[in-house]
Design a protein around this nucleic acid. Sequence first.
DNA 1: AAATTAATTTAAGTATGCTTAAACTAATAT
DNA 2: ATATTAGTTTAAGCATACTTAAATTAATTT
Lengths: 221, 221
Amino acid sequence: MTVSVDDFIKTIYKQSILAKADTKLSTISGLLNISNAATTDMARRLARKGLVIYIKYKPLSLTTAGNKLALNVLRKHRLWEAFLYQTLSLSLYEVHREAENLEHFTSDYLAGKIEEYLGNPETTPHGAPIPSFNGNVHTDSSQILLSEAGAGNIYEVSRLSGSGKDFFDLCKSGGIIIGARIWVEKQYRLKKMTEIKINKNKIFLNEDIANAIYVKKLNNN
Amino acid sequence: MTVSVDDFIKTIYKQSILAKADTKLSTISGLLNISNAATTDMARRLARKGLVIYIKYKPLSLTTAGNKLALNVLRKHRLWEAFLYQTLSLSLYEVHREAENLEHFTSDYLAGKIEEYLGNPETTPHGAPIPSFNGNVHTDSSQILLSEAGAGNIYEVSRLSGSGKDFFDLCKSGGIIIGARIWVEKQYRLKKMTEIKINKNKIFLNEDIANAIYVKKLNNN
DNA sequence: AAATTAATTTAAGTATGCTTAAACTAATAT
DNA sequence: ATATTAGTTTAAGCATACTTAAATTAATTT
């Protein structure tokens, strides 16, 4: 598989598991930063290869084989993140950036060796689950998006699923790290903002950010 | 740069530093396992990009920029070999195989971090020198090819520069590892064979093998 | 229901990196 | 000096992965 194919399949996969799954052709084009024509073209070619289900004018989806491929790429990505974080002490942003490249040229054998070295971890340092070679993903159903968290409750940060440097810089600057406690003050649904209190600081997060932070409820009262 | 370009440049570089430098177009084609037509095509395109010096019917060579690129790829390749050998305990053959892929997708930043982690080693576990970021290669001038070693002398194995599984299997099976002592019994120039004694065993090596083993003379008498 | 708009597809074109087959050039042998 | 042969180039063609522009379809608005 090529880098383009990996990225294409990965993008569809990631979109398809979202709460509001959006695998519209133009959405995929946008995320991959290619034209709609290129996306149509690729979808057709991958349909012929049995990885993508392509029906004219319909949202894109993956076949079982496509899904397996996506999980395998994701697995390698996350193993690299965990490995480089542990051995080279790179930042969360840096490991993501490097893994984005390395994932495409990693043999199943090497991935297995890295996994073994790390002691078969369930998640990356960002809290993302690492799929097994067979395509099993251990998803923690108790975690929800910060954008969906209820006002008045206390939560623990369990996963940072953003990707850009800005996202990680912002999180770090606001003290939003895995394990941190967050008081959700208010959800401004209309303005699509979330108000939280963390380390005595009041912080307002927009939708994009609050949608990339997973939390677990702490006070079950 | 693409994988094809990296490999093309790397192959010309490796051929050009050989004692009997052979950068004939068909030789490069052979090593890359592509047609002569494809090599001509690539040479032309890379000449346009200022990496290769291409004159019709003449051997291929690299520009200064091309040389720098080759050394940078080689640097990443060797840093990966050293890193995976140390952290994951892969075999010499395995680290070579994996590095062959990873080298193309490694940022200069990551390469620097790996180098730092390893404590700025001069060579890989195979004994190959690791070029610096600036393109400096520390070549040990006291080492020669086993195929050129003088009969009657004792040598120490200083580098295994082969690449295939067979090569490493053969070396291991014969006790030819970095640091091992070798008595060179005879050079059969006509038959292109080298007879050595190692660990009390008599071994005959063909040209291919003896050309991929570097040794240093031990008894300066 | 018709018109507008948004999304998607089709068509034509490009660069990369290959292929095979035919033409040509350079080196070698007679 | 000429013929042979080895090496290289040219030509035509293909798959991948993109582009822009035009045509078409689907969804939305009036």
